[in-house]
Design a protein around this nucleic acid. Sequence first.
RNA 1: GGGCAGAUGUCCGAGUGGCUAAAGGAGGCGGUCUGUAAAAUCGUCGGCGAAAGCCUACGCAGGUUCGAAUCCUGCUCUGCCCA
Length: 402
Amino acid sequence: MESIEQQVARLKRGTQLIVPEDGLRAKLEKSAKTGKPLRVKLGLDPTAPDIHLGFAVVLRKLRQFQDLGHTVVIIIGDYTALIGDPSGRSATRPMLSEAEIKANGATYVDQLSKILDRERTEVRFNSEWLGKLGFADVVQLAAKMTVAQVLAREDFRNRYETNQPISLHELLYPLAQAYDSVAIEADVEMGGQDQTFNILAGRDLQGVVGQDPQIGLFMPLLVGLDGQKKMSKSLGNYVGISEPPLDQYSKLMSLADAQMRDYFLLCTDVPEPEFDALLASVANPMEAKHRLAREIAAIYHGAEAADAAGAEWRRIHSERQVPTEMPDVTVPAEEVAEGQVPLLRLILLANFAASKSEARRLIEQGGVTYDGEKVTDPQARVPVADGAVLKVGKKNYARVRA
RNA sequence: GGGCAGAUGUCCGAGUGGCUAAAGGAGGCGGUCUGUAAAAUCGUCGGCGAAAGCCUACGCAGGUUCGAAUCCUGCUCUGCCCA
């Protein structure tokens, strides 16, 4: 068993902030003394799950707690989702039905278990306790927080100052989350830095009701592949943990050099001195990036698959060869005339363009290669030859199947 | 409850009767360059069409006009001020 000192050091890796600073040690000592595992909380929205490296940063930290014998409590925010956003202008944000939420919850657990240890994971839905609160209970809870406190929170303040609408119920969200901590008697709550306010609210509320307040453990938000914004699915700057190894590898190779250190720190287990030395010593940053891509692909797919992805990547990019594997496109018989098909059609069939206009543009701009030949005539018809390779842009390949 | 302001393409944001598929920026996509990336640079970004052109689009619904993102009416939503 590691000493408390070592445990603290391990758990601190990559963290952005721990509140209070010495709280982690105190909690660990208490747990060691009583033999009672810590309850480490993470709250999630029951929206369609999609776990990417940014989210994995937090999950991996939870896993570290589990490896030290502690319990992770995942809270699916089904109740808050049921309330939904009633004033949502666009009809495109339908409230999730109870069945959908349950289904999403199940998928979540499934995906989470790629990183977490199921044996030490407790999954709870917050309707379990929030659904029992009456209006009077809610009002009493709300009395524990002031408007100024809530508005001091950065995102609300920004929205308020820029005249963005804030609905009243949004102000209640931190309260609901805080109550979750009370309900499950959390010792530690994890979150990204955007969760600061909510997590501290939980601390306060626990104090009010006489519980030992949770400590907040904040992980930095992982910046996405664009090097600008936090990694998220909607921004398209993400690497999913379930993606095939080559996709992960390729995406990571297109990471900005300056971001490599953060990714090593937050997404791999490579010791800090080691990657710092690597980053300092390597003449060509690409070599360090290969290491990074390999480490990460190996976490999710195993060392062998990661090496294969690396070899394939070098083949495609360094040697500019056609990838060994690519999706097939089959041209329906009725589209073939005299053994040929319009190239435009082919691009659409392969799903490399959303419209004919876009496909035409791609051809005119020299982005399309068929069977090794660059084609720039948008009217071109090409032979439907089994095994011919269609290349659109830098990364899109498909093999024609006759 | 009263008054005022606003709603434009992926986002931000110009545009106050024809020259507007709509300036500019961000972002995306393609080309060149390269060590992957970035940067730089050139091009491009509603749909259909070989093209001419046609269709759809400036919150929603009507109206005025030869012609409307631009004017009028009603509605919806948002912000601000007053109560």
